[in-house]
Design a protein around this nucleic acid. Sequence first.
RNA 1: GGAGGGCUCGCAUAGUGGCCUAGUGCGGCGGUCUUGAAAACCGCUAAGAGGGGUGACUCUCUUCGUGGGUUCGAAUCCCACGCCCUCCGCCA
Length: 421
Amino acid sequence: MIDLRLLREDTDLVRASQASRREDPSTVDTLLAAADRRRDAVGRADTLRAEQNTTSKRVGKAAPEERPQLMARAKQLAAAVKAATAEESAAEAALREAHLAVPNVIEDGVPAGGEDDYVVLKEVGNRPEFDGFAPKDHVELGQLLGAIDTERGAKVSGARFYYLTGQGALLQLALLNMAVVQAVETGFTPVITPSLVRPEVMGGTGFLGAHAAEVYRLEADDLYLVGTSEVPLAGLHMDEILDLSGGPRRYAGWSSCYRREAGSYGKDTRGIIRVHQFDKVEMFSYCDPADARDEHGRMLAWEEQMLAKVELPYRVIDVAAGDLGSSAARKYDCEAWIPTQGRYRELTSTSNCTTFQARRLNIRFRDAGGRPQTAATLNGTLATTRWLVAILENHQQPDGSVIVPTALRPYLGGREVLEPV
RNA sequence: GGAGGGCUCGCAUAGUGGCCUAGUGCGGCGGUCUUGAAAACCGCUAAGAGGGGUGACUCUCUUCGUGGGUUCGAAUCCCACGCCCUCCGCCA
């Protein structure tokens, strides 16, 4: 939910944000009208309640002969309060609905437009050259190495499921462990999170809006399978007032992630690029909104640090407004070069959600004056299963073996090469 | 699956229709005293919404798990729901 004070003070900014997202700017005016209506309703109801309170208090103390009069007046007021309260809650509900319809206000500098309107901020590293052989894709490499079994994944669970076996399982554990170690060294608290969350948490993080179809729901228990540990990490401090005087509160969550991939039929059906279940180490930060932009920069730098460790060529893009999702004010993706696809694919994504998520989840902190204020939340990827695709493809040798990036070797018991089995 | 207990201002508790403007203890903050500290004593001690003032502030309303209901008036009475905990059974 966006800040209503900002909406009142700078309505045009919010309208412009909607325009950049290619969304309907009239939702902004609907919200403004709903906010005004609620304010008026609250004022009227408060005044009536105040009068009713003083009147009914006098009833108890009144002399018997003046009671009937007071009671009559009190009854009138009770009816008036009831009507005013009904209008108040109707206005409240309308405001909430209008509030939920407006996505976060984008940060200045975010490119306008949709999915294809991103801006490339930089390209890092050299794409591999395969002298005298055609590079194999990760599915073929995964088979040769006995690392990835998509056929049996499909047999047991259906399309977009897979087994990581042998070197594949070890490689994923090594990668995720390396991510956790980096996070801990940087000052993050490592967390293993619940995979199932309640509706209010899933809704509070913004995943039940336009992307609700992406989320697995367990009907019998009214719980949701998380698509990322961002969800339980955001829920961790909901309804709390945090002490952020010592700087941002940072968590690194390790979890499996579940996605229905509805509407992506036929896209990336081969291999483990787009799957229903994968594992991820995710950074999450609670901070003072004044510090959020800098924190976002730090998150991006930590992601790049990971990419450097696995020696992948990548580029950083500034995601366009229309492709941000409802919670993010700005989003940077790091995309690794995938040789057999001849293009870059997303490996990390870091979002600055400013106060949007925290306002819904009621996450606050005390400012310098000791007053509660809404906190800012940010998240970013440190490693996922998808990284295996880029690592295998970029570091492959003609015989199908794969060189293990130096930084990763200690996490694989010193292994320098993955050999076909 | 079955049975029971609970949900009050950070924590613990009191509170069975108007004296609750929610008390008390702990913790926390400030002060007195002290060379300093402790102890003792004194004071302060939640959140949200709306309004007024440049501002330190101030006024009003709301909140005792949530939502309804009864009543002039509800933490307190009635109904529904949610959540937490314990025990039994079953399973890992």
